[in-house]
């Protein structure tokens, strides 16, 4: 087992974890601004298709299930890591990564369909604000996939005695936040399409 360095801090919370929470708090502003931008502009498109014409809620619900399940896999990966169970740690981390890749696949499919339906990035302000919001979220998922992949690869390089509990917990916080943002986007962007 690799010895994890425990830093004594004023707050009593590991600095890496505290730093991630500061980042998450600041990301609330980013996504808050993007959601506001979308809600203001979604009905202002003068040309091209509107949201109600092109959204496919069935597909989006499936991608929501996928992201929720990847969050479950994330907590199970962390639990296995804390229990020093290398097989389950690697298995569940792989499941999280796969969940993220599948979600990105759904998003690619959705964007591809929308572009073919005539909604490009610059077609109208609805398209611009929609792609900016969901694309920014997709970028966060992509970063999470890269992050967890690097941890999985490192696990194989460093051997079966490497259990990065704190690092995985920090990566998990990021991943769950991305999931939480999607919970909001699914409701506000997709389910409120008729409002």
């Amino acid at each position: 087992m690799s010895a994890e360095v425990v830093h004594h801090t004023v707050t009593g919370i590991d600095n890496r974890k505290f730093g991630m929470w500061v980042l998450i708090a600041s990301e609330c502003f980013l996504f808050g601004g993007l959601i506001l931008n979308y809600l203001v502009n979604r009905d202002r498109g003068l040309v091209g298709p509107k949201a109600v014409d092109i959204f496919n809620i069935d597909i989006t619900t499936l991608s929501t299930f996928d992201l929720l399940m990847s969050s479950v896999a994330m907590v199970l990966a962390l639990h296995a890591c804390q229990q020093h169970d290398i097989k389950k740690f690697r298995f569940w981390t792989t499941m999280v990564i796969l969940g993220g890749i599948i979600f990105l696949g759904f998003q690619y499919f959705e964007f591809h369909h929308f572009v073919h339906a005539g909604l490009g990035l610059s077609t109208n302000v609805f398209g611009s604000s929609f792609y900016l919001l969901t694309g920014c979220h997709g970028l966060h998922v992509f970063v999470g996939v890269l992050w967890l992949t690097s941890m999985l690869v490192t696990s194989f390089v460093r051997g079966k005695d490497w259990f990065p509990s704190v690092q995985l917990e920090v990566a998990g916080l990021y991943w769950h936040f991305v999931d939480v943002v999607w919970i909001l986007l699914f409701t506000v962007v997709y389910l409120f399409v008729y409002l």
Partner: peptide, 30 residues
């Protein structure tokens, strides 16, 4: 998700306050 998967329910309350501050300010601006 926030309470159990992100462990806010079990972690020191300062983290929940910080997250709540970010969320609250974003909601206020909205």
């Amino acid at each position: 998700v926030c309470g159990w998967y992100m462990h806010l329910r079990y972690d020191p309350s300062v983290l929940a306050k910080m997250f709540g501050f970010g969320l609250g300010l974003a909601a206020l601006v909205y």
